[in-house]
Write a protein that binds this DNA or RNA. Structure first.
Lengths: 336, 336
DNA sequence: GAGTGTTCTGTAATGGATTACACCAAACTG
DNA sequence: CAGTTTGGTGTAATCCATTACAGAACACTC
């Protein structure tokens, strides 16, 4: 028992009008006599007609769908952005095609191409690194692209972020003011601009302003995971650092738990500050002081920008920087 | 500078063949002379032709897109399922339209309708409750629906789950064996079948098998959040319960932290067991004993079932039950 | 009542593929 | 070598809407 589809033709026939008129009614075109509109709506109701979005997309060249490329939905940070994106998309009647890229360049390019083949009206890209090939694809794409929570030092592509450099500088400066001189930096891969070109820069700037020497043996490159944190902790302990800035909340949780369990007290022996203020920062004991980011808003603003671009409007600013904050929790000592 | 699109027509003209032949080449139809195929592929390469998936979808009546309805992507549990879904979907060359429903019935129906309008070839539904209206929509839909991590007591719709009742029964029985007689149950809304009809049943069964009385004042209905847990903790403490089974990991984390901070020691004064084995269970101190679920696989298997249905194949079993486990962590005492 | 606008509706082209069917040529059969 | 397959290719209908354009109906003006 195939369920046959009701088309605009069927409605037109039943309502004794042309399909153009039905189309007008469906799309809310005001040039329809109220009586006709009513008649058509009645038939639509009776036949339970739903316009076919694919046919509509072909005819109108707009799919009312946007592509979202995300490294991994199970990553709380990116999932929060995705939620902001989807909410705003829904508000503007767009749907989201979501695909995981695992941060792999080749996969990202592939995904972008399938998205373009599906005629998405725009793309929101989240990732940790943008290389030349990807940048080239963005340019080649016939739909606009906006980066969310993702930096591109080249700055061609519109993007929404916080000022990572300033945030790190501020936290490191606060640590220095409290007397720390050996501050470790636990980051993800330094191949990613956010680490190598933003966070590290903030760290260096804070040191240099305080006239402290930069010691690259205090900078650690690890994975974005709890286990990476537990493994890194003894190394940090050996380094003699009395404070550490961590680039990922799960990693920070690993460092904290491993510290406490090996007799290194947080915050007395080691102060810990992390980056993303996810729920994890509230769950550890001690809870973790963190940079706060308006995650949901980063996604939401990115989507808002994309809707403008999709409607050929100008952007007020291409590179949006949202405000960050810092929440003090128990993993750092209070300022004197 | 509009980027003009290359169509199958352009390729046909340049390669001096008909569009049908180009279509055959693109779709890997074997009835094409190797020489012709090569010639066409060269032109495709030269013109950088990409088939328009929308046009293809209209003509072939298959969009190679499936809809995924999720309560909230930022929920780790569902996000893990979504990841499994997407990976398998990608393996079968499908894309995912993901939409958040916030578990709201009306929204779920809306979303389902837009998905059908977009001509998705199938739908994976995740949610906490399925009411009659939703069930009716599933039936009405012209594309197959599979439930992932979502129970429907009616059992009409194919689904993938673990045996929640048995899992709860097993954990409660273990607690009873260790001597507990007052065991609390902290669940999400009892309006949801998974709580009211599965977990609660397992709890009751364990009690009755042990000939312990059922006391509904030990059953708590709360939200799926950390704060809900911290708020619930004093109530549990007052009840005199010496163990608690929790339906959500964040809630469990809240209960644990609030307990420890109010001088109720976990596991000495209160043993805690939770349900989803997310990363949170490893981060709390004590870490939380949990039922383990193959989250990724639940999503993956659901998607595999859906691909079968989309290709009009029969399902081996309509209601798939994957195995669960139990990991002991520090929030429970070891068995004697 | 002719002229001029509006408002409303219909006709038909269009979007970019898939695919049933027809056809011709080459290969095979007996 | 006529007859039948098989392989390779093209023609044209089809999918279901949008939309430019044309035209009809009606109201209004002088």
């Amino acid at each position: 028992m195939e369920k046959q589809t009701v088309t605009i033709y069927d409605v037109a026939r039943e309502a004794a009008v042309s399909m153009a008129t039905v189309s007008r009614v469906v799309n809310g075109n005001p040039n329809v006599k109220p009586a006709t509109r009513k008649k058509v709506l009645a038939v639509i109701e009776r036949l339970d007609y739903r316009p076919n979005a694919v046919a509509r997309g072909l005819a109108s060249k707009r799919s009312t769908t946007v592509g979202v490329i995300i490294p991994d939905v199970t990553n709380i940070y990116f999932a929060a952005l995705a939620r902001g994106i989807d909410d705003i998309a829904m508000m503007y009647k767009y749907n989201i095609i979501l695909t995981n890229s695992d941060d792999a360049g080749e996969q990202e390019v592939n995904v972008l191409n399938t998205l373009m083949a599906k005629q998405v009206d725009g793309v929101i890209f989240m990732g940790n690194h943008i290389d030349d090939q990807l940048r080239a694809e963005f340019k080649r794409a016939k739909a606009p692209v906006v980066l969310a929570g993702t930096v591109d030092p080249e700055g061609d592509t519109p993007s929404v972020n916080i000022d990572y450099t300033a945030a790190v500088e501020e936290t490191i400066t606060a640590l220095i003011k409290r007397g720390h001189t050996k501050i470790a930096l636990a980051l993800g891969p330094l191949s990613q601009s956010i680490n190598a070109e933003y966070r590290l820069a903030g760290y260096k700037r804070a040191l240099s302003k305080a006239k402290l020497p930069y010691d690259d043996s205090l900078v650690y490159e690890a994975g974005y995971s709890y286990d990476a944190g537990t493994k890194l902790q003894p190394v940090i302990a050996d380094s003699g650092a009395t404070a550490v800035f961590v680039g990922d909340d799960e990693m920070a949780a690993g460092i904290i738990n491993a510290s406490m369990e090996s007799g290194v007290s947080v915050p007395d022996d080691l102060e810990v500050i992390t980056s993303n203020d996810t729920i994890i920062t509230q769950i550890t004991r001690p809870a973790i002081t963190s940079i706060t980011q308006p995650l949901y808003d980063i996604g939401a603003v990115a989507m808002r920008m994309l809707t403008k671009l999709m409607n050929d409007k100008e952007l007020d600013e291409k590179t949006v920087t949202l405000p960050y904050g810092i929440v003090r929790r128990a993993s750092t000592k209070s300022a004197e």
